[in-house]
Design a protein around this nucleic acid. Structure first.
Lengths: 356, 356
DNA sequence: CATACTATCTGAAACGGTTCAGGCGAGCGT
DNA sequence: ACGCTCGCCTGAACCGTTTCAGATAGTATG
């Protein structure tokens, strides 16, 4: 083989061997309709003989200005976030929104050292970013914005001056709380991501503040701040512990509002452990309606949100910006949520019907 | 602002404004130790004033030859694969293995149109690929290999001449089968990804062939091909249906070997539905030991495999190759598996102890 | 037969950085 | 005062493509 001296094979080498100009060689790969079939064949043959891996993506990108990928900025460290059973649906949505153009998705892990994560964002070869539920002060958000690329924000942070896709967290939470009130519950525990009062407030997600407010509004006079427990991370275990704590109080709650299905699952475990039957002795409402909710025992009453739609809308908007240049007309979508009532909620035991 | 005429701000503009050469401006960003503090400050100030987004990643990459990202080739379409509860652990491992270098992870979705997926692979701006459980004939694999970049294969396909990380699927499956034999089961159903005889054999994963062989070996004379059911996709539902079918046979199996925890979960559902109690009337063995296994009712006996280790080893090997250039000495790691026995398996009911 | 196209190919100019060999003063040892 | 070293900076080459304005030749048109 002629050029097998450790050097990378370049388009120029291929062109040379095929006896055509570099320009033609390039066309042979990228725009077959511009060269004769004969030429194309020769170029391809030469490429094959030389073991040419195809046009270098970086060079192409430099010239064309398109990276063929979008960056996804997650709220938690890569490994951890994927624990969230909600992510798959979201990703599926993204994939659907990008279906047309063959586009890669660059996950940007939040390293323990935030500077590094920010650096990854700064250096990422992408055409745009989707920011998915990031913390208010995440440095990656700022860096992403400073890249002057199209950006779509999902869920968080709400403040950003970019197209936004999300839900009405407050109203959704309120509906969950109202459901419990209507059933007659008067002592309601809350499993929260974080409280407004959390000392490490730096990581604060406004989403959770909204939900907390929603719970409070929906609960009305039944709202009791002493029954609020903060759980982290978003997994069953911390919720299990918190629930056990709540159930062991002298005057335990008859219902639990969980900010995620994961928390609800933890609460379910706690109840089973303490032989408290759900929903007879304890009602539980989750949030998310992830895949597990339906299959829990008992099936979970929970707030359903359109994870997949969030993803597909976000990526479609992003692709539109990348291709068309212009942001969407109404750059703010608040998607509908729905309280789906299954078997984990009921009237509190011994509760008389309200009325005369 | 001087250059705010729609044109992108280039390093040259920054240098000009700061009154230094392009070279110095570049150093100011990339290698601060090579310029005086004074110069650096001026450059940064100029960049700030001009709204310079930082060095263009594509240009940098073209010059330096490093992309700062690795590609991950999945076995299923982007959206779907993440349904596999095993993926998070694997991803976590990858993230851990890449911790040092700030590196992105480019997910390469398998489009419905395979050519497109292959094109994404060909054009991806990455320094290497991790192939994770891809089908034998997946065109993306071939394309990835032809890019002449470092590659590490995980689980699948086994044939590839690249460093490989996996488990001994056959031995693992065998241990599961032997466990049932030791308990005294003689009719054992199998829920398989696919059979060797599958007509659409094009997608065949050798992994599942190995497992099937392992089951067969472990079951010995109890092996009965008529009790093998093929389920797809890897989710509870198809397994549920298959199990119901099996249980309704005239002479139903007393145990089930499932090739994944998802299948085992489906079997569990089927049993509950038919009021067949587990493990008394039906033993079930899963595969994977994903997060759900432990929390299933009853907790699942299953083959545990080190998902996270697979990820971290693969990414470490890949990074080593990217950085050092040389593949690992022993480019083949078979990680240990373990049969973890929980409560979904027991002696078949009415089964007399073996002996005189 | 001259003219106007059409089809195809060529060559060179970007694209936006990074790197590196040198140049230029200033400080230092003697 | 001389020669060195050292720190800092400049300028130009180069990374591997794509694109685009011509050049060329062959073909259809009038």
């Amino acid at each position: 083989m002629a050029h097998d001296d450790g050097r990378r094979v370049r388009l120029r080498d291929v062109a040379e061997r095929a006896g055509v100009s570099v320009g033609s060689a390039s066309q042979a790969f990228g725009r077959p309709e511009l060269v004769s079939a004969e030429t194309r064949k020769r170029v391809l043959a030469a490429a094959d003989a030389l073991g040419y891996p195809g046009p270098d993506p970086a060079a192409r990108r430099l010239r064309t200005g398109r990276a063929g990928a979008v960056g996804l900025i997650f709220s938690e460290r890569l490994g951890y976030q994927f624990t969230d059973p909600t992510a798959p649906a979201f990703l599926r949505g993204i994939a659907r929104g990008m279906q047309e153009a063959p586009t890669g998705l660059l996950l940007i892990p939040d390293s323990r050292y935030r500077d590094e994560a920010a650096r990854t964002v700064r250096e990422a070869a992408v055409d745009g970013f989707i920011i998915y539920s990031a913390a208010q002060n995440d440095p990656r958000v700022e860096v992403a914005l400073s890249r002057r690329l199209p950006v779509v924000t999902v869920d968080q942070p709400r403040g950003a001056a970019t197209p936004f896709v999300g839900i009405d967290d407050r109203a959704a939470a309120r509906s969950a709380a109202e459901h419990l009130r209507e059933l007659g519950h008067e002592r309601v525990g809350v499993l929260s991501f974080i409280t407004a009062l959390d000392p490490s407030g730096t990581l604060e997600l406004d989403l959770s503040v909204e939900r907390l407010e929603g719970y409070k509004e929906g609960l009305g006079e039944a709202w009791d701040p002493t029954l609020v427990r903060t759980c982290r991370p978003n997994a069953p275990e911390p919720a299990r512990e918190a629930t056990i704590e709540l159930l062991r109080e002298p005057n335990p709650p008859t219902a639990i509002l969980a900010m995620s299905d994961m928390f609800a699952l933890g609460a379910l475990e706690a109840a089973a452990e303490l032989r408290v039957s759900v929903p007879e002795d304890l009602s539980i409402v989750g949030f998310d309606d992830g895949p597990a909710a339906e299959h829990a025992t008992p099936p979970l009453t929970t707030v359903a949100q359109p994870h997949e739609e969030k993803g597909s809308l976000a990526s479609r908007w992003l692709m539109d910006q990348i291709e068309g240049g212009a942001p969407p007309d109404e750059p703010r979508a608040i998607l509908p949520t729905e309280l789906v009532i299954r078997d984990s909620t009921a009237r509190p035991r011994g509760r008389r019907r309200v009325g005369p």
